[in-house]
């Protein structure tokens, strides 16, 4: 078995194990924690398309989660459109908004882009909190939207509501695997090379034929579209959305934290980041939400500082080296056997 094969087999084994997990984990609570973990890994991966590969720091991705959640929910509540179509509609709308935000701001360098995305998410949140009706659409202001749960007999695939946690688990896991595959394919393609080059040395990339701004906007649109799909999923999972749950800086920052700590611009980074950090958030909320709300952000901040000091490219790099050394040892022992 070569190193390449060993790595591929590990990947396949991990994927199969993830799909088989609900056979072992029967508790709804733990399944829910896993679902949320995958959801964050998914959102961070889509964030990473812009924040990692294109080399800018978007701090307002909650806008797209919110657009996805509100679009599908409004369509379902007012027009009875299945959330699956709502998911695509939200994605398209978010892609358009991503284009409008990205077109002027992605030309800015460094902190200015980050600040303008932050301003945008705050602006949208305040607007939604103060608007009850947006044209014909009922956003219900700060009270949010409640999706009435269907009775057990009525739940079905098209309603995107299920009696147990397992279907949600499989849906988000499929979405995650899909978006990881997409990221992998992009990172090997012309677009991936152009994004990475343009993010690191824009002048050099432009001289090599890269329209840096255009590729960044393309990445932004794709990222917005995919992030909005997570918003629809979140709405259908919790059946209740309000501005402070989906349109917040908290969520925007957390995605950036996970990516930065896990490893920006790498495919495994968001997964590793989510695996390590989501439990921190989850448990600090369970145990400290009444006494110290927001504690998880402080913990994440401290972890981020430590990681940036000692592993500025995130935790993926040392873990990859560790994994590679195992793969090499495996390779070497296999060669021994053949002799």
């Amino acid at each position: 078995m070569t190193q390449q094969n060993f790595k591929r087999n590990c990947l396949i084994a991990a994927t199969l194990a993830a799909f088989a997990l609900p056979l072992v984990v029967r508790s709804a609570t733990y399944l829910h924690i896993l679902i949320i973990l995958y959801l964050y890994a998914y959102m961070t991966t889509t964030w990473n398309l812009v924040g990692g590969f294109a080399g800018v720091l978007p701090l307002g991705h909650a806008v797209f989660v919110g657009i996805g959640a509100y679009t599908s929910t409004v369509l379902w509540l007012q027009y009875g459109v299945t959330p699956w179509i709502g998911m695509l509609a939200g994605g398209v709308l978010a892609g358009a908004v991503g284009f409008l935000i990205g077109k002027p701001t992605l030309k800015m360098r460094g902190a200015y882009f980050a600040l303008s995305t932050m301003a945008f998410v705050e602006g949208i949140r305040v607007m939604v909190e103060n608007i009850d009706m947006l044209g014909p659409f009922n956003l219900n202001g700060p009270r949010g939207l409640n999706i009435p749960p269907l009775a057990h007999g009525e739940v079905n695939f098209w309603a995107f509501q299920f009696a147990t946690k397992e279907p949600y688990y499989y849906i988000i896991l499929t979405m995650l695997v899909g978006v990881l595959f997409l990221t992998w394919a992009i990172s090997r393609s012309k677009m991936g090379f152009y994004l990475k080059g343009g993010g690191e040395e824009p002048d050099a990339a432009q001289a090599l034929g890269v329209n840096v701004a255009r590729y960044k906007v393309m990445a932004m649109v794709l990222s917005s579209f995919l992030t909005a799909m997570a918003g629809t999923f979140l709405a259908q999972l919790t059946l209740f959305i309000y501005p402070k749950s989906v349109l917040t800086l908290d969520l925007s920052f957390e995605l950036a934290f996970i990516a930065l700590i896990g490893g920006r611009g790498s495919i495994a980074g968001p997964i590793i980041g989510a695996l390590l950090l989501r439990p921190v958030t989850e448990f600090s909320r369970i145990y400290f939400s009444s006494t110290l709300p927001g504690l998880h952000l402080i913990i994440l901040g401290v972890v981020l500082i430590v990681v940036m000091l000692f592993q500025p490219r995130g935790l993926t790099e040392p873990l990859t080296n560790f994994f590679n050394s195992i793969a090499r040892r495996f390779d070497a022992s296999a060669r021994e056997e053949r002799k």
Binding site: K196, G197, D203, A204, A205, A207, G209, V210
Partner: peptide, 25 residues
């Protein structure tokens, strides 16, 4: 095509990847 007086390599990419960016033109 041009080179820069102060070299501007893509620091996190290998030599081959650096040149591949150019070849995608």
């Amino acid at each position: 095509a041009r080179t820069f007086q102060i070299v501007k390599p893509f620091a996190s990419m290998t030599v081959l990847d650096n040149v591949t960016v150019g070849a995608f033109a």
